Structure formats: structure tokens, C-alpha cells
Simulated assay, not measured.
Amino acid sequence: MDRTSKIFLAGHRGLAGSAILRRLQSEGFKNIVVRTSVELDLRDYSKVLSFFQEEQFEYVFLAAAKVGGIVANNDYPADFIRDNLLIQTNVIDSSYRTGVKKLLFLGSTCIYPKLAPQPMKEEYLLTGELEATNEPYAIAKIAGVKMCQSYNRQYGTKFISVMPTNLYGPNDNYDLQHSHVLPALIRKFHEAKSNGAEFVEIWGTGTPRREFLHSDDLADACVYLMNTYEDNEIVNIGVGEDISIRELADKIKEVVGYEGRIQYDTSKPDGTPRKLVDVTRLTRLGWKASITLEEGLTATYQWFLNNELQLRKVVTI
């Protein structure tokens, strides 16, 4: 890519997409095209294809997706598989039909088997059963990966797929029912501190281990790979270290300044026991994460505080 390349960033208001947009803008890219879901429904093939035919993009970052935590995936499984399949299919096929030079598809580490060996290597894909709580979403993402690889094989396209680990950062979803664990914990501890609550309740046992990548690090990796990587194999994006939910809760409690206690509801599901990605391939390609979890949590909580009034308008507490 050069600074004048015409780029379509799908999903620019989400956690990953907004970070990619900030990164591109900071590097001086001037020809970035974005559309809200109201302006362009990516689930509508005819509209997407017409849009691509009119704009003639050179590069595409496909960060648009329907995402959510355990509750959202359990409550809306049909929405998760349908919407993501439609979005991916329409953008990938339209990119091929209009001669896009290169596309980067953002998948998810939930594509790997529930009990995959840790850390999870890229070759573990399709070697075991998926985690039941997010299977529809994972299957959709696997289909996106295979679609990119198949188009590369049949049509000679350059569509690459990256698998980011659990993300956090600005523009995350802080809805207590439908968010992922880290933003949900930030909101829970913040509300408990504000209300003087004696304890914060957390789902599960606190023993599952997760890896957390700041969205700005993800954006840096995506731009780096868009410029340097052309192989057909998927690439994990992560930090190469994990932490238990209990340890994460303790860190967030400290960052927020909450002085009450933590109570675990062991009747609720834990989800996958451990999710840590092997980042050997990414490291060999020349990239490594630079934002520590402590730095990232502090910055993310500050962003939350700065945007709390706006968040109250769109989030049900």
C-alpha cells in the first residue's frame, strides 16, 4: 500500500476496525473509504457488489462482523452464523469481481478446537470439536478463512486471513449482557465502585486462562501484514502470554480502584478452559506486540471514563 491507495475498511466503528482506521490515518493514508451499516448493508450482495464496482478499491480490510460474548452467542446463534456468512461472502466475492489487489480478513481464535493443545498453532484448525457456546460464530469465521484460501487457489487472488486473540481497547462493547469478559469486568468494577457495592459477581470459577491483545497492537499487525504477507496460510495475532480470569479481575479491580470483594458464581459456564495462541509464525514474519496488559488496561479504563456519558446512552446497565 502507498499513501494514495484506495482502501475500503469494513467495520470501521467496531473495536478492531476503529483501531485500524486510527492506524492508517496516523500513517498518512488519505484515501480510506468507510460506510456505516445504515449507509451500506454488507449483508445485501447486490448493494455490496454495486458499491465495489463504483468505487474500484485497491485494498480491503474486512473487520466487519457480528460479535459478542457467551450470552450473546447463546441467545442469537442464527444471527451470528447468518450475518457473518453474508458479510464475508459479499465482501470477499465483490473484492474478487472488482479486481481488489489484496484483502485482509479478520477471523478469530475461536475457530480452533475447544481442547486444542496450548498454545494453539495455525495447523490445529479443524482438528477437533469447537466450543459449543460460540460454534455458529466460529463456523462462519472458518468459512471465511476457507473462502479466502479457495479464491486464492482458484482465481489467484491475494486474500490473507489473520486470527486475533481476545481484543480490548477503545470503542469496545460494554453491555453487561452481550460484551466480552474484559470490557464487562471494567464496567462491573466501575459500577460497583460508583455505587459502593460490597462485592462484584463474576461468572464461572475464574480459572479459565485467556490472552488479551490491545486493539492498537492488532491494527499495527494488520497494516504490517497487509504490506508484507502474501501466503495462503492463516496467521495468529497475539501476545504469546495468557492470564487467568481471576488474575485479570484482580488487575482490573486495582486499575479501577474498587475496594470491595470479588464473588464467583460457579453455576455459570466458564467457556473454553484456555485460549493462548502460538505466535511463532507472526514473530518470524517480523512483528511482535508492544503494549503490556497493565498499560492497556489503564488506557482503556481512561477511555471508558472519558466516554461514560455517551456509553450510558447506548448501553443498558
Rank of each mutant, 00 (worst) to 15 (best):
D2P: 01
H12W: 01
G14F: 03
S18T: 12
I20H: 00
I20F: 11
L21A: 11
R22N: 08
N31Y: 00
R43I: 06
Y45K: 13
S46W: 12
Q53R: 10
F57I: 12
V60M: 08
F61Q: 11
A65S: 14
V67C: 10
V71A: 15
V71E: 05
A72W: 04
F80R: 00
N84V: 15
T89K: 12
N90L: 05
N90V: 03
L104Y: 04
G107K: 04
I111H: 01
I111D: 07
P113Q: 01
A116F: 04
Q118D: 12
Q118I: 15
K121M: 14
L130W: 00
T133Q: 11
E135H: 02
P136I: 07
P136R: 00
A138P: 10
A138R: 05
A140P: 06
K146L: 15
C148T: 06
M163T: 05
M163G: 00
T165W: 05
T165I: 14
T165L: 13
T165E: 09
L167P: 00
D172H: 07
H180E: 14
H180I: 13
V181R: 04
L185K: 00
L185F: 14
G196E: 06
V200T: 10
E201M: 10
T205F: 02
G206L: 08
T207D: 10
T207G: 12
H214K: 04
D217H: 04
A219Q: 08
C222I: 06
N227H: 10
E230I: 14
D231P: 09
V235C: 03
S244E: 10
A249C: 10
K253G: 12
E254F: 10
E254N: 12
G271I: 02
D278G: 00
R284K: 08
L285H: 04
G286S: 13
T292D: 07
E294A: 11
L297N: 02
A299Q: 09
Y301N: 10
Y301P: 03
Y301H: 07
Q302C: 07
V315A: 12
I317Y: 05
